[in-house]
Write a protein that binds this DNA or RNA. Structure first.
Lengths: 340, 340
DNA sequence: ATAATTTACCAAAGCGTTTTGGTTGTCAAT
DNA sequence: ATTGACAACCAAAACGCTTTGGTAAATTAT
């Protein structure tokens, strides 16, 4: 089935069929209805290759999945799926094509974006896995590709993005703990060259300052993300040296596992001797005993919003942003201390 | 940059440039080298839309990600990523395009495959999320689309596939436990309309028979997969009623979590009072205390093999299959019983 | 009644390739 | 010297669509 055959069946020109389906106003409504009806009947839909070639627009969304670094990590893949699931709802309704590539390292990642633009000729991109200072942004702008970033670079941001409110989430957690009279609060972060880790640290520091608690550098640890056992060892050491610590904030699920292990090892009762609160613990959260109190984010909505913003770009050209809502899920790992 | 400009620069016809790059023998080697050199220099690569349109081949691999059922489950997404990562190594080297779609339910899933074939005109497909009896297989055959299934239907299988050796893995586990003198072995499976669950049950039953242990239907539970707490409740009930049980095999990570919780609840020491062994526990396995002994599979290789088979189909037309290798990772959750 | 505008349609060009069916020139075989 | 085979190249058609620049008929304005 193609447009030529359909046009012949309808006794219309190819042009009219194309324009009827394209929603142009120089087709009468009666004709349009007839065309749509027959297109459905004969299961016609335009050959995307031909239409891309002719129009110069691919109507395709490019997306690169990094298979290295944080994302090679089983637990973090969950956030990926949520994002994708969020996108998919919108993609269906907007009828966008979806083209995916993979990257096993940073170089492949950049090449993938270039290929997306120059070879695949996608016209929209979800930019993901942002570096502090990201050269891909310049490239995308130069090529005039519409994009929405999932995450943010540091400094001035003059593009559309969706993201977690990392700084705000840290503050929310701090406020929560401080209300429960915790003062000696440790923070287990991952390497700060992940921008979200940097942002989370900022929130932590800011809250300390606001509450007139002096930053104790022994309370702040930045670990490699891959290994709960490494985290556990570091956390044990920290707890041994700093017996005043009453609460631990874990920036990733893996470090939460490490914290659990450390506490078990040191025979400290979680939720009693020591409080633990973690970021986004759908897996780990319910595993531990007691279950971990955690801060969760509306991640699915992030993907949805990203597509929405991308679609709206056709209409207006302003910068849009979206922060996922954060919420603390109280389970059993945080206790209230006596006021002293 | 396009072929016309490149041809002009090379003082060759469009045909010759195209055929040089296409590897045809009616181009001299000197010319071919020159063409390739200049193509690189000017960063030329054929417009995939134009070439698909002209050749009628899309050179695109279609893949549908189901966002419902088992796969909506955080833990199971890990296997997905491993498969994709496995594919990606091959895809890069084979220069295949990759087109992805999403499905939020069974109907959408089937539609997605139809769209992949009729609209996107992919010429290869990874068929995934197989039902016991799967109508998509007939559809793919009718449309003469080359495909490799990830998973298997029941009954006669006359197509290429890659899969875990579910039955064999169950047997391996059983042998392992029986060698450690366990006889009262419980099996926590998920619903058997997942074909892999059915296969695993078969392995369990077969091993029992081979070792002349009578099947005790109270020892076999098939739970809904989504909820560790539900599993935990069911397992507790089972353990209470059947005090002879010394080992539990968990077919999914979620039920393993359930089992851990149940044992903790009942104050049974894992690895002492009761042994637990689980399928594929990259996340959960190392979380528990003690860590869970598990059977793992070379999942990444599965994706790699799938693409390999798909690529080889261009050469010969036979059916190829691949079973992932299984291995038991001994950690601390299984103990050896005294011979009685 | 005529001119101007609007509505509804269409032919043909063009998008960047691949492929078909050539042609030309060279060399070995007769 | 002629023929046949082969190597190396190419012009033009085709793929299925969108878009441009029309035309003819119907409607409205003068």
């Amino acid at each position: 089935m193609n447009i030529k055959i359909l046009a012949k069946k309808l006794r219309l020109s190819i042009t009219t069929v194309s324009r009827a389906l394209g929603g142009y106003s120089d087709v009468s409504e009666t004709t349009r209805k007839k065309v749509i009806k027959y297109a459905k009947k004969y299961k016609y839909s335009p050959n995307p290759n031909a239409s891309s070639l002719a129009s110069g627009k691919s109507n395709t969304l490019g997306f690169v999945i990094p298979l290295y670094g944080l994302n090679s990590n089983t637990l973090n893949q969950a956030s990926f799926f949520e994002f994708i699931a969020g996108m998919s709802t919108k993609i269906h309704s907007e009828n966008i094509q979806f083209f995916m590539m993979f990257a096993n390292n940073k170089l492949e990642e950049k090449n993938a974006y270039e290929k997306l633009i120059n070879v695949q000729k996608v016209d929209k991109i979800i930019l993901h896995n942002l570096k502090k200072n990201d050269s891909r942004i310049g490239m995308l702008k130069k090529n005039k590709i519409k994009f929405v970033a999932w995450g943010r670079t540091q400094g001035l941001i003059d593009y559309s993005w969706v993201d977690l409110d990392n700084e705000g989430s840290s503050k929310l957690i701090m406020q929560y703990l401080i209300e429960k009279n915790h003062k000696h609060i440790a923070y287990i972060n991952i390497e700060e060259n992940y921008n979200f880790a940097f942002q989370r640290k900022q929130g932590y520091l800011d809250s300390l300052k606001k509450n007139k608690i002096k930053f104790n550098k022994n309370y702040y640890i930045s670990v490699k993300h891959e290994d709960p056992d490494q985290s556990s060892a570091v956390i044990q050491k920290m707890l041994n040296k700093n017996s005043k610590i009453t609460a631990i904030i874990c920036s990733t699920e893996y470090s939460a596992v490490g914290a659990i292990k450390a506490c078990n090892q040191l025979n400290k009762k979680i939720g009693k001797d020591i409080s633990i609160i973690t970021f986004d613990g759908p897996v780990v959260g319910t595993l531990a005993n007691p279950s971990l109190t955690a801060i969760t984010h509306e991640r699915k909505n992030l993907g949805h919003k990203a597509i929405e913003i991308l679609t709206d770009m056709d209409k207006d050209n302003r910068v849009h942003t979206h922060l996922a809502k954060a919420k603390i899920i109280e389970r059993g790992s945080v206790c209230k201390l006596k006021k002293n």
